[in-house]
Design a protein around this nucleic acid. Structure first.
Lengths: 228, 228
DNA sequence: CGATTGCTTGACCCCCATCAATCCTCGTGG
DNA sequence: CCACGAGGATTGATGGGGGTCAAGCAATCG
């Protein structure tokens, strides 16, 4: 496999602050994996003992609720790192990660990351910033979940997907989620999500081409998401 | 005011990892404040330029949603620190903090904390752990908000308050929240919260003595929170 | 080419947001 | 000391949002 020192992906995450030396060390012990669509990267309760750096593809990160439904907490893609949290507080993962499409990841053992955190201030500051940002984001999600209607949340989610995953100028996404996935992001029943998607489609805010969802009127969706 | 080196409060948070020297420096430039019940510690959009260490009392930390309702994100008490996030990523606060009862805080300037993060690995690791923990917590809240009914969330919230704020053996809380506050934690209308509180009261899971809410049957509330 | 999985729509009903009226409680000023 | 006003607590009535069950259809796969 390639060498971390030459990997562009790390520019997108905290690993960019590591030194050449550190990267070389990591390069020597990292493990590259391919996870096929639908397969599990790690599951709840598992001890990950390291972090995953996503080189390509998309994973849905979810957590099982008491009522037995999977709530999707996050979608991670190329350049994202996952597993730092369990690593830092030395606990088993409380989340599950499943490949939405074929995914290539590099696994970096715990010791290497801890070593970096202990000896490289820039790296640990980057990690802190990244977590601080995730926390801010989580707060926003909590407020939305608590206060917004399902319709508002769907509009917000479509915009989120549009902004994070749109590939080319025609607005198609790099990601293909099932209706159930979308419902599990919003936190609603699949049928409710479907009905609202159909409504948005009729009104021309989005286009449904098979399973593809294309946002055609972001402005209007923004309005809806904010409650108008 | 007292000296940080001798302050017991810091044992409850990341500041415990600071050296005697660092604490002495901080002691010299910290500012102690008293915030009266209902007053604002800081508000959304404000540049805090430091962190607050709660010495006594309770603050509700909230965020305004698009529809104009305040969502309470967190309740912080003696020993908690707030403001690290905005400090780390150098942004204005996205949250508001209001004193629930009279609160005593120490304000520690940004530079001191940054200095600690730069030079004291133990301190920054503690901060990382603290944030990792908050993130795990936030994930749980997101799942609950997305998947649970208002009744379940109320039961869970009552248990949370019971565990975090119960003072003496008779189950009374150190905290006195209005019905509106409780509703704003759950993310529901005040009337809905009131109705359910009344229902729990009739069934004997809690006791309502004036504004005081006392949990009398945690086991049953646990069952409800999990959906039975 | 069955069979499984995902998508869609209809029907039903309960939860909960909202509006409204009343009661309670406490702090303030006369 | 009491009246009174304001904010909080409570209860009722009502309507819509959204969860759930069920049936039919489309698409994908071994």
């Amino acid at each position: 496999m390639g060498k971390c020192e030459q990997c562009i992906i790390r520019e997108f995450n905290s690993l960019k602050s590591l030194t050449k030396q550190e990267l070389t060390r990591i390069s020597g012990c990292k493990v590259s994996k391919t996870i096929k669509k639908g397969e599990v990267l790690f599951k709840e309760g598992e001890h990950i003992n390291g972090v995953y750096c996503i080189r390509d593809g998309i994973c849905k990160v979810s957590k099982m609720s008491d009522n037995g439904r999977d709530q999707i907490i996050n979608l991670i893609k190329k350049g994202d790192i996952i597993g730092e949290r369990s690593l830092v507080n030395n606990e088993a993962s409380n989340l599950k990660a499943i490949a939405v499409n074929d995914v290539q990841v590099c696994f970096i053992p715990k010791e290497e990351i801890l070593n970096g955190l202990q000896n490289n201030i820039d790296f640990s500051m980057d990690m802190l910033k990244s977590m601080a940002n995730s926390l801010k984001n989580a707060d926003n999600v909590i407020v939305d979940m608590a206060q917004k209607t399902v319709k508002q949340r769907l509009a917000a989610t479509l915009l989120f997907l549009h902004n994070k995953f749109k590939s080319n100028e025609d607005g198609y996404l790099d990601i293909l989620l099932t209706r159930e996935d979308i419902a599990n992001i919003i936190g609603t029943a699949t049928e409710s999500a479907i009905r609202l998607l159909s409504e948005f489609n009729k009104k021309g805010y989005i286009k449904l081409k098979g399973k593809q969802v294309v946002v055609t009127n972001p402005t209007e969706l923004q309005q809806i998401a904010q409650g108008f």
